[in-house]
Amino acid sequence: KKPVIDPKLADYRGVWVFVEQEEGVVHPVSWELLGRARILATSLGVEVAAVVFGANDETVDKITGQAISYGAEKVYQVVDPALCDYRSDPYTDCLVNLVKKYKPEILLLGATSLSRDLASSVATILETGLTADCTELTIDVENRSLEATRPTFGGSLLCTILTLNYRPQMATARPGVLPIPLPEPDRKGVIIREPMRIDEEKLITKVLGFIPDPCKVAERLSTAEIVVGGGRGIKQPGHFSLLRELADLLGGEVGGTRPVVQAGWLDTERQIGQTGKTIRPKVYIAVGISGAIQHRVGIEKAGMIVAINNDPNAPIFDYADLGIVGDFLEIIPALIRVLKKKRAA
């Protein structure tokens, strides 16, 4: 049956993306979302807008320029010293106020720790629906509704969730799943600087400091062109040095499955899959990995998947492009030798 849309929802127009930044560095999921937002906005015949918060003009203007080049036609800015580090209260207040004033029909954020905190807070105050951790976002043009698709039951099924009678329709998207659009530096956009009165005295929570992750593992893994993944078939933590050597030769990174992370063989940040990272390298080499659905959902977007496993019936071979049946202790050293020979040639 066709749902009846409340006429007062018709006031809500436009697709918004909250651009997430920490210390002036934008999380790439924001650009991934702007790319998709443009497609959604085109099918709805509306504008794409970005929302940028920050402590000073310099940061906010720089990010605004980037947002426009990635497809924002309008940018709503809020600049205030209180917005320096992420804090739930002032960020929520600012975003709620903007939404109430300008009424977007769709509001998208990244499924990161920062934006999940913000999105849930905003959706609760606005009393609207929020679909979490989406891997696909499309529009049902007939009733102008957002179809937000997310994996369920560990990725074995997908389900599409709608927010029919509430606006804005909100969703968070899993980083690394949607492609980043090509930036076009010549694009022009309208900038709206929204004054907000934030009283620092009234804010209860204070950020006293920030300890940056020195190795930026998450960032490196998500942008790596080659990723070598290790699973329980590696047998010993020491064997990861082989995978690291292979990855280094190819200028890539090492990741792995949940069991090896839980065994403490690999950093938590390097877990790939449903409860870890989604990666989109050109080549993913799965070594000693059985191919459980919870792992596969994190590697689906790879350009090519190579599986190395000594069990010819391992499920991973049904989901890979190229497969080698063999003991990784024979295959990986041979692969390293071949690559070294190529490099020397």
Partner: peptide, 13 residues
């Protein structure tokens, strides 16, 4: 608390 790019040290009530 964990943030995407590191660890935030936060005082609250």
């Amino acid at each position: 608390r964990k943030s995407e790019r590191g660890i935030q040290i936060v005082a609250s009530k």
